[in-house]
């Protein structure tokens, strides 16, 4: 009643082909999946599209499939389904862990993983876990499909790799063996809040040396980011609390936080270090390496 949404033409599709045809033909449109972000953006007039394409009933994009060495998630999979999925919990727990800290149950029942990615908020909470899982995205159009790494998907706030006639169809997650991963979010309260910073990390260790390290953050740059400085500093190093703490400090080289109503840039910078540290320690703990540091 109090927020006047712009007038638009509404198109509902039930198959991916229909959807692709429409995005190919129409100009000036927005795609609605769960709607939890888009309807808000329409309310605050961030977008005033002429057309809305409702893809929420494209059932063929709602799935979680375990293919052994990879998991495929349809872009229209609801966030709560990801939290509840035994497949995700077993093979990509860090994603379930991050998604469970997103929004509220009511929102997770509507919002989709594809929607969270395509909305391209700097605070997208599905991004850090997908970054550290080296996930890939399948983008489709009437012309065909292409696969892009999730780290190449975000171009800026609300800007993505998607061409005008493309849709995100699937998220492909390689299953990591012997890796520890974790996701931590810091907000202004304990629940249901936008991130001040969120971090996900993934580590592999062999011979007590870091064999692989992946660190990703949101809310500290125009897009979610990986933290190569931290990763490079650790790979090949002996696993120790000191190494983790020293390397975590380097995260400031990989981020460009701003001040806004939620937090100052300084605080975000400092918290990026703390959360990176905490998440790395937790990830190590998940592969049986408890280094302390929680004194």
């Amino acid at each position: 009643m109090f927020y006047k949404l712009p007038r638009f033409n509404y198109y509902r599709v039930t198959s991916l082909n229909e959807a692709l045809k429409l995005v190919n033909e129409l100009e000036d449109f927005k795609v609605v999946a769960g709607g939890t972000d888009l309807v808000m953006d329409l309310k605050i007039k961030r977008y005033i599209p002429k057309n809305i394409i409702d893809i929420s009933r494209v059932k063929e994009l709602d799935y979680i499939v375990d293919e052994g060495d990879k998991i495929r998630i349809g872009a229209l999979t609801r966030l709560q389904e990801i939290v509840d999925s035994p497949i995700i919990r077993e093979k990509a727990y860090v994603l379930a862990e991050a998604v469970n800290q997103m929004a509220s149950w009511q929102i997770r029942n509507m919002a989709t993983i594809g929607g969270n990615l395509c909305n391209a908020s700097p605070a997208a909470d599905t991004a850090p876990p997908l970054y550290v899982l080296n996930a890939e995205l399948k983008l489709v159009s009437v012309e065909g499909e292409r696969i892009v790494p999730v780290t190449k998907f975000f171009h800026g706030p609300r800007k993505t790799e998607l061409k005008k006639n493309e849709l995100l169809a699937e998220i492909i997650i390689p299953v990591e063996k012997d890796a520890g991963a974790s996701a931590i979010k810091l907000g202004r309260r304990n629940a249901f809040t936008l991130s001040i910073v969120a971090v996900a990390t993934l580590v592999k260790v062999s011979d007590n040396k870091f064999a692989d390290v992946r660190v990703a953050l949101n809310s500290v740059a125009p897009t979610p980011v990986r933290a190569p400085s931290v990763e490079k500093a650790l790979i090949g190093k002996e696993v120790s609390l000191e190494a983790v703490e020293e390397a975590s400090k380097l995260v400031v080289n990989d981020i460009k936080p701003i001040s806004d109503v939620r937090a100052s840039a300084d605080y975000r910078r400092e918290m990026s270090i703390v959360l990176t540290r905490d998440s790395l320690l937790r990830s190590l703990e998940r592969i049986g390496l408890k280094l302390g540091g929680e004194e």
């Binding site: 202004r188 309260r189 304990n190 629940a191 249901f192 809040t193 936008l194 109503v261 939620r262």
Partner: peptide, 11 residues
């Protein structure tokens, strides 16, 4: 209410 935050059951 996105940015004027009040306690939830978890707080």
């Amino acid at each position: 209410m996105t940015d004027y935050v009040v306690p939830t059951a978890l707080d």
